[in-house]
């Protein structure tokens, strides 16, 4: 009697566990997996053309260095913020490369996926929410920023422009920069009706930032009425932070830069998701 009861209980237990296993298979993937799968989709499409997508990030800093090192640099003998001009510009390129790639990915790229290729329509039919889709895309743009920063780092290191090993942390700033420009680009894209309107974003926002954020020349000598503007725009903080990383010399102001970047990502990201959601789910 006693043995039979034990056997029965055991049998019940096993059927229950198999049932449970079947049930759990009916549970949708967890958040981290959903974000990863969106990231994986973009990574897969990007690496599909590894040659044409992966080589230019290395060629571009090479061209810049050649132009500055062989030409422009010989005219600029004054040191900038204590750095040679080659090092000054080179460290700036670490973050501008991340800025440009993330800005393109999350403006033109996103708009094409949204309106022309209808990629999101298909993805939203699978177990993904709009939030998964957008946050996954932001993380992907950050990753691209990291990769582009890394490419610049490789070139700078090969030519001895910057010093290892501290600068190996620079791609992390590239990641933050990429993420920052992903969220702002997504927010802008959420307002755009035709793809050509994005040109204003690049001419009016991205290009000026390249010149007035301390990448090409120090901002300290700019007229005082421009100074507050310089402090507001996001790239300034990336540039300051990446130079601190490369020199391994940190001050209090870099804590402010880091805070600015994180806050920017969270606040602008929140509104970008909110606005794009309305465009994807109606």
């Amino acid at each position: 009697m006693h043995r039979r009861r034990i056997i029965n209980t055991l049998r019940k237990l096993t059927t229950q566990t198999t049932k449970l296993a079947k049930e759990s298979k009916r549970v949708f993937p967890p958040l981290y997996w959903r974000l990863y799968s969106v990231w994986y989709r973009h990574m897969r499409v990007y690496t599909k053309n590894i040659f044409s997508n992966g080589l230019p990030p290395f060629l571009e800093p090479l061209l810049f260095l050649a132009g500055v090192g062989l030409g422009l640099g010989t005219y600029i003998t004054q040191s900038m913020e204590g750095l040679s001009y080659l090092e000054f510009l080179g460290t700036g390129l670490l973050v501008t490369a991340a800025m440009f790639t993330a800005a393109f990915e999350c403006s033109f790229g996103t708009f094409i996926r949204l309106e022309f290729d209808k990629v999101y329509d298909g993805m939203l039919a699978s177990p993904l929410t709009v939030n998964d889709l957008i946050v996954g895309e932001i993380i992907w743009a950050g990753t691209k920023g990291l990769f582009f920063s890394f490419a610049v780092l490789c070139i700078l290191a090969i030519f001895g422009v910057i010093h290892l090993p501290y600068s190996l942390l620079a791609p992390l700033v590239g990641f933050l920069t990429g993420t920052m420009f992903a969220v702002i680009s997504l927010l802008i894209t959420s307002f755009v009706r035709t793809i050509n309107q994005l040109n204003f974003f690049f001419t009016g926002f991205i290009s000026p930032m390249f010149f007035f954020s301390g990448v090409v020349f120090p901002t300290s000598n700019l007229p005082s009425y421009i100074q507050p503007l310089v402090e507001i725009v996001p790239l300034t903080h990336s540039v300051r932070l990446v130079r601190a990383v490369c020199a391994n010399h940190y001050q209090m102001i870099h804590l402010w830069d880091l805070f600015y970047i994180v806050a920017f990502i969270l606040v602008v990201g929140f509104f970008a998701v909110k606005r794009l959601r309305r465009r994807m789910v109606n």
Binding site: R44, V45, D117, K118, V119, G122, A125, S126
Partner: peptide, 22 residues
């Protein structure tokens, strides 16, 4: 509970929206 529904459904949208690069 859209995720629970989508996890157990298959959808063929009006547009094909395949990834041309792949």
């Amino acid at each position: 509970q859209e995720l629970k529904i989508k996890y157990q459904s298959g959808v063929v949208p009006q547009d094909n929206n395949l990834d041309d690069e792949l």
